[in-house]
């Protein structure tokens, strides 16, 4: 992708974004190599239940004597996988929807956008709750629920992008040379939309992680014994007197992850806006 390297360079120049990238990198590495690093989220040790953080248990232990750090690491796995799957699902459905609706307009636009309106008629969490009420509680249901609520975001952003690009002369030019609709859509408009889609992916990651955790916290997300941050908060809340760290530390991991995605998303938006502004300035100067 053109400009990908440049955008990354701009990104690491910003302190907040660099820190966020570093944190996410560590988190992903931990999640991927969790087994190799010897984290065990299920080993119980009743003798050591609800122990405060110590040299042996950096994050302490839970009510069954399980190592909270291990559970946080595996929770990252659950969280990232559920959110990642949801974002992919939302993108695979939402991007083509927006592309077709924006490019062809007319009845296709009307039908697709009404579908989006229906998805938006309910706040995301209600929609997810309704879906889970139907499909029962599973990691797949959580992923599906979070993913479907992400579709409108992609569809709307891509559609808006297509509508604005369609007015641009370089898209009209393709038609003037005799390029087909497919060529216009996939070879001209889509490559000019990747940046916007990328921003949406990052933004949706933070929303998806939050939503997944919220569902687990409400007791309807990824079911136990799979470790998940939301579920840990839910249980930890019952032991606030005995073991405050139980609810604090997984929540901290969750918060930092969300903040990291949010920071990167905002930095990306700012970088792309600056680029646009630079182009506009150049155009303004010449007129």
């Amino acid at each position: 992708m053109r400009g990908g390297a440049r955008i990354l360079r701009e990104l690491v120049r910003r302190k907040g974004a660099l820190l966020s990238l570093a944190f996410l990198a560590v988190l992903v590495l931990l999640a991927v190599f969790a087994v190799a690093l010897g984290f065990d989220p299920v080993k119980q040790n009743i003798l050591h239940s609800l122990e405060a953080p110590s040299r042996a248990y950096w994050f302490g232990t839970d009510e069954l004597g399980r190592d909270i750090l291990s559970r946080v690491v595996y929770g990252a796995r659950t969280s990232l996988m559920t959110a990642g799957g949801a974002v992919v699902l939302a993108g695979v459905i939402g991007v083509p929807m927006g592309l077709v609706a924006g490019f062809f307009g007319g009845w296709r636009d009307a039908v697709l956008m009404r579908a989006v309106d229906v998805l938006l008629a309910l706040p995301a969490i209600l929609f997810a709750l309704a879906l889970i009420a139907v499909f029962g509680r599973s990691q797949g249901a959580a992923m599906l629920a979070v993913g479907i609520t992400g579709i409108p975001g992609f569809a709307r952003i891509v559609r808006a992008q297509v509508l604005s690009l369609r007015q641009r002369d370089f898209v009209v030019a393709v038609e003037a040379f005799g390029g087909s609709s497919g060529y216009s859509m996939f070879r001209t408009i889509l490559p000019n939309s990747w940046n916007q889609i990328l921003v949406q992916v990052v933004v949706l990651c933070s929303i998806a992680i939050l939503l997944e955790a919220a569902l687990a916290f409400l007791g309807v997300g990824v079911p136990p014994p799979t470790p998940s941050w939301g579920e840990m908060l839910r249980t930890g809340k019952s032991y606030l007197h005995e073991a405050p760290y139980y609810a604090i530390l997984p929540g901290l991991a969750l918060t930092l992850t969300i903040l990291s995605f949010d920071t990167i998303g905002r930095s990306l938006t700012a970088i792309l806006e600056n680029e646009d502004a630079a182009v506009t300035r150049a155009e303004g100067v010449a007129s």
Partner: peptide, 13 residues
């Protein structure tokens, strides 16, 4: 960015 349920827990604490 701070999830409401975590903020709530911190406030309760």
């Amino acid at each position: 960015g701070v999830p409401t349920f975590w903020l709530g827990i911190l406030l309760i604490l």
